[in-house]
Design a protein around this nucleic acid. Structure first.
Lengths: 346, 346
DNA sequence: CTGAAAGCGCTTACAG
DNA sequence: CTGAAAGCGCTTACAG
């Protein structure tokens, strides 16, 4: 059997109480007994039973993190970041993936609450508007990571998509591009809309009208983007010339599909057409040509989500629900070789 | 405050005992009261406190899974598979990454044991021979996934590397290749040694001697493989001709480095040199040319690890430590376009 | 500085 | 079929 406080107490002829306090190094226990207790615990291989202590303290030192799916490396970065800061502060992470399924997401949330997590970090599916309501009822703090619920009054951490899109606009403009295609995710995605918004409003600053910005809606997968892009090329090309010189892809996955479609029609990147992606996935350095992409620092998003969580948990219980806080992180453009210079200036 | 059994009991003028049994649908409670209890629980938004119940039952319905790092997509597949079967059976997963650091690994194991996980699935670092001993002492069941501790008497699940390597040998041989380079991981890696072993013993069956199998040790990273491969090419090429026609890369990451080095020296794949990788990472379909690779079905490894765990947990406690079981999964070769046909037969 | 007692929210024999 | 009591392993006031 596992050794308990009682075992140590018996061993030392002390009370369970004293052992408990001694182990937690409280200074109302004399230093010598504290040492003695801690040494004996070590010797007997004592391991605290957190389930028991959490019953009393209402703290489990576990945090749940719910992502959408494991196949996207972006999620791994978020988990990695969150776990790193969580562990440093003595927390263990529970994990679950919704696979973009609202029912599963809700099930996982329920399970984690049963398990008694102190709080929840989630990359929400956005398909389940009731979820936030339920979370509010649960009284457990939660922070939304990497995705936006429109008008939500809650803790969240995400990358500034407007700035990211502006970075793309600036990059293309600096290289002399004047006509664009934005290969979007679903138009119902707030993130996708924001990126288009940031992109086109920046370009209009430069005197480039909306007419010069084509858009193409996709399901944000590589295969989906590939199919849509093929059709688009077929419909729009004339004498093997595209009506745009630059493509802004919603994500690197989308960019991959775009690459494949362009290559199929014999277009060379960046010679014939330039491409910039978003997310700065690892494979962006591997594909040919290496893809210029916006890094939204998902590791940092994970870290800050966890940090925000810890900050909340440090608050007295009755203050935790007050003043949710939004944290917006700054993206960064990573230059590679998928953009041609049309400006003739260098 | 969260609603407890007591609240439901008060509401219905029943004892906590009855409510507890009613909620668990035990048939020594009359059907009508059972229904009543369950409806009331639903109504009040009751959520079981697993920490409390586990204190009594010694079951937490959580399983810890410890991987080496998040950056390798292979790990995500393992987690995905393990979580899928775990969740289906009512378990929640705790997660931690050792980053190949033995001290962190041990810390995480300790934390998870404190948290009271029912068992542990781990992709061990192999740097910490004491770990298994400690795990044995903990009395908690554990299963090792995807990596081999030599001579370990414990539950494990991994892919048959010998078979995988044979698949590669067969593939190259069928296409007429006769001289090879194996780009290995560290020679202290049992997995890497097994792959070489399977590869060369198969080839010797075909009458190809060990002299025709060069080897190159790397650290199994893309960059490391790239550097080592460059040096190798410089040392071995004569008049821009390599001494081998086919390269077996320890992993797809290694293959990426190999690709980069080959391209730098102007070698075309597969025209000048053929390459086969291992792991069948997603990016293998993206790189140019698409990489033929051995899929070791990590998702399945995750699933079976969890399944094995559940099977153990179904055993009475005193039988759990008996008869550890090894499960070896079957790899599969996925053909793409990185192997030239030298046989002239088709 | 240390101990006796109560209680966290459950479940498990045991009565009736 | 339902209830009273004890206990899982801790922590928290409260005494002394």
């Amino acid at each position: 059997m596992r050794v308990t406080l009682k075992d140590i107490a018996n061993e030392l002829n002390l009370s369970v109480n004293t052992v408990s306090r001694g182990l937690r190094n409280m200074d109302d226990i004399s230093l010598p007994t504290r040492m003695l207790i801690q040494e004996t615990a070590q010797l007997l291989g004592y391991q605290r039973n957190l389930a028991a202590s959490s019953l009393r303290t209402k703290r489990s030192y576990s945090i749940g993190i719910i992502i959408t799916d494991y196949s996207n490396p972006v999620m791994s970065e978020i988990i990695d970041g969150a776990e790193a800061v969580g562990r440093k502060h003595g927390y263990t992470m529970m994990i679950g993936a919704s696979n973009e399924n609202a029912a599963i997401e809700e099930e996982i949330v329920g399970r984690m609450l049963e398990q008694g997590v102190d709080g929840l970090i989630l990359v929400p599916t956005l398909l389940n508007p009731d979820l936030l309501h339920k979370l509010d009822q649960s009284q457990k703090p939660y922070v939304l990571a990497a995705r936006k619920y429109p008008d939500c009054l809650c803790n969240f951490v995400y990358c500034d998509d407007l700035v990211g899109a502006r970075l793309v606009a600036d990059a293309f403009y600096a290289k002399g591009h004047q006509s664009f295609l934005y290969v979007a995710a679903s138009h119902s995605s707030a993130v996708s809309r924001d990126r288009l918004q940031g992109f086109s409003s920046r370009l209009s600053l430069f005197g480039i009208s909306h007419d010069n910005i084509h858009t193409l809606e996709t399901d944000a997968t590589r295969e989906g983007a590939f199919q849509k892009m093929r059709s688009w090329i077929q419909a729009k090309q004339q004498d093997h010339v595209l009506p745009v010189t630059a493509i802004f892809a919603f994500s690197d996955y989308v960019a991959c599909g775009v690459y494949a479609a362009l290559k199929e029609f014999g277009y060379q990147i960046p010679k014939d057409i330039s491409v910039i992606g978003f997310d700065n996935n690892e494979f962006s350095t591997i594909i040919e040509p290496p893809l210029t992409s916006v890094d939204n620092h998902f590791f940092e998003i994970g870290q800050r989500s966890a940090q925000r969580m810890l900050d909340i948990l440090d608050l007295p219980e009755n203050e935790r629900m007050r003043s949710p806080q939004g944290i917006i992180t700054m993206p960064e453009l990573v230059w590679r070789n998928s953009v041609a210079d049309l400006s003739g200036s260098e």
